[in-house]
Computed example of a mutant assay.
Amino acid sequence: MDDLRISLDIDGCICDFYSPYIRRFGVPKKDSEITKNVVRILSRDKDFWLSLPVINRPTFRVHQYTTARCIPKSWIKAYLEESSMPRAPVYQLYSHCISKVPRIKMGGCNLHIDDSLKVFIDCNLSGIPCLLMDNPSNREWGPIGRIYSLDKDEVEECYYLFRETMFPYFRKLVK
């Protein structure tokens, strides 16, 4: 595992964004509704971001956090510190429409973990192995490259199996 330089998403991987969001705004009809509420309302609500419940705790060294949160980076760092997450640089995009791949590569990572099926596909098609953190919004994908925790042994086992068996043929999987 020492050769893995892992980039880790935050929302849906280490913290639960969706339950607090739904309690506040209700179940969204489409993703653009979430984006609108985040940009217009939640981007100014520091307490919302600092109080998100931790759902997974990595037991491995995190090389960097790569997130598309459109909030001050100081809030992200405060959340990670207050939640006792491993210290690592935060690479931030300000839109969900921009690929995370350049930031992951910029940080020198050779593995990314995300709960977004879109990011999972984009990374793997772009040559960055990505594992998919299980959650209800991505279950249509199936088991390939899926993890259920941020346990070092599970991540390592899934990564090496995925890299040796499916990653070379990923483009054929998504056609």
Rank of each mutant, 00 (worst) to 15 (best):
D3G: 06
L4Q: 01
S7K: 04
L8T: 03
L8P: 09
G12E: 10
I14T: 10
C15Q: 07
F17P: 01
S19Y: 12
P20N: 08
P20V: 06
Y21C: 04
G26H: 05
V27P: 01
V27R: 15
V27C: 03
P28R: 02
K30D: 15
K30I: 04
I34V: 15
I34E: 08
D45T: 04
K46C: 06
W49D: 00
W49E: 02
S51E: 14
L52C: 04
L52R: 12
I55M: 11
P58G: 04
P58W: 01
F60N: 05
R61I: 12
V62Q: 09
Y65S: 00
Y65N: 02
I71W: 11
P72A: 05
K73H: 05
W75R: 03
W75H: 06
I76K: 00
L80Y: 07
E82V: 01
S83W: 02
S83A: 15
S83H: 15
M85F: 03
P86V: 04
V90E: 06
Y91H: 13
L93Y: 06
L93W: 00
L93A: 08
C97P: 06
S99P: 12
P102W: 15
R103E: 14
I104Y: 07
C109H: 07
C109A: 15
H112F: 08
I113Y: 01
S116D: 10
L117G: 01
V119Q: 06
V119A: 06
I121V: 11
N124C: 02
G127D: 08
C130V: 09
L131W: 06
N138I: 04
W141V: 09
I144F: 06
I144G: 05
I144V: 09
Y148W: 12
Y148C: 10
D151P: 00
V155E: 02
E156T: 11
E164G: 10
M166W: 15
F167G: 05
P168Q: 12
F170D: 08
R171V: 12
R171M: 12
K175I: 05
